[in-house]
Simulated scan of single mutants.
Amino acid sequence: MYEAYYHLTAKPFQLSPDPSFFYGSKGHNRAMSYLEYGLHQGEGFIIVTGEIGAGKTTLVRNLFRKLPGDKIIAAHLVSTQLDSDDILRMVAAALGLKDIEGNKVTVLRRIEDYLRECSARQKRVLLVVDEAQNLTAKAVEELRMLSNFQVGEKPLMQSFLLGQPEFRDTLRGEDLLQLRQRVIASYHLGAMDEAETRAYIEYRLRTAGWQGASLFTDDAYAAIHQFSKGIPRMINTLCDRLLLMGYLDELKQIGGIQVNQVIDEMRQEMAFVDPEEAIKPVGGASRTVANTQLALELFEQRLNKIEDSVGNVLKLSRQILDLASVKRIVEEKH
């Protein structure tokens, strides 16, 4: 809706991960370096953790975009609450195997046969497991067992595990000692500071076609960072709403007053989760927010409906004004 008003070619702050909008902050570049290092090693596990909305999935999609398709076969598995048997079937499905039936031994045999076929074609298999904090310790151990498939001393599959901070608690368990010994690198993806938040916003605007002077004032950038805590998804949610407000109010620049006004409106939305409320320690352990992602998705759906409704109202208003103008002209002629 606001794209035409601001002369944009795309929505710069959509919530769905888009590798074409990948911004290399210090943290994201470091995490990407670890993933690329893991690819170069060709073995072991790489662990990347980060808060909800920190950009882990965008990181993965950016990695996939750079993979040599003639050398590496990549499979992306987004886990839910899976036990040890389910994880094997999910891995097989992610690898593209059809008609996965039979017991655990049968599924393992099919996965191993597929991995050996890939090796015979001089191709490596990379498995990326997203939302790994949802896995039980037994399910994670099954992933380690898959790394035992080898040709000579060369592993047939390598795994990258990405999850929220609580996944580190799972990895500390005594029954995952052997997996920890195979982790060649791990990294925690933190939030961006105020300067990076500003650079992130400006980068996404330019990528979407913005060519004017700064769309946000200095105090607006400060307010955005203070509210979002430097979490990309929260920045996107707020900035998308700000551009909608700017379009409706015909603003050429958005300041701190407008940012605080939109923040107040968002805090009144039932589907909205405040970043300060979404991050709370539980019993001294790492932070757990079960419904945050769902709430943000519901908020985006509501926002899209609001945009459609506002668009229809504006269209109808223009039609009424046009009819009134025509009527006035006709009356003046008579």
Rank of each mutant, 00 (worst) to 15 (best):
H76R: 11
V78C: 12
S79P: 06
T80H: 05
Q81P: 04
L82T: 02
L82C: 08
D83K: 00
S84C: 01
S84F: 13
D85Y: 15
D86C: 02
D86S: 14
I87W: 11
L88D: 08
R89W: 00
V91H: 04
V91A: 09
A92F: 03
A93N: 02
A93K: 10
A93R: 08
A94I: 01
A94Y: 05
A94S: 15
G96K: 01
G96V: 02
L97F: 02
L97N: 02
L97Y: 03
K98C: 04
I100L: 02
I100T: 03
I100K: 01
E101N: 10
G102W: 12
G102Y: 07
N103K: 12
N103E: 14
K104D: 10
K104Q: 15
K104C: 04
V105L: 14
V105P: 04
V105T: 14
V107N: 11
L108T: 09
I111D: 01
Y114T: 08
L115D: 09
L115S: 07
R116P: 08
C118Y: 07
S119Q: 14
A120E: 14
R121L: 13
Q122S: 15
Q122I: 13
Q122E: 15
K123Y: 08
K123N: 01
R124E: 15
R124H: 14
R124K: 15
R124C: 06
V125G: 07
L126S: 04
L126K: 02
L126A: 10
V128T: 11
V128F: 05
V128W: 04
V129E: 05
D130F: 04
E131T: 12
A132T: 02
A132E: 03
N134P: 06
L135P: 02
L135A: 01
L135G: 05
T136W: 08
T136N: 01
K138T: 09
K138V: 06
A139F: 06
V140F: 12
M145Y: 12
M145C: 06
L146M: 07
S147N: 06
N148K: 05
F149R: 04
Q150D: 07
Q150V: 14
V151M: 09
V151K: 05
G152I: 00
K154M: 10
P155Y: 00
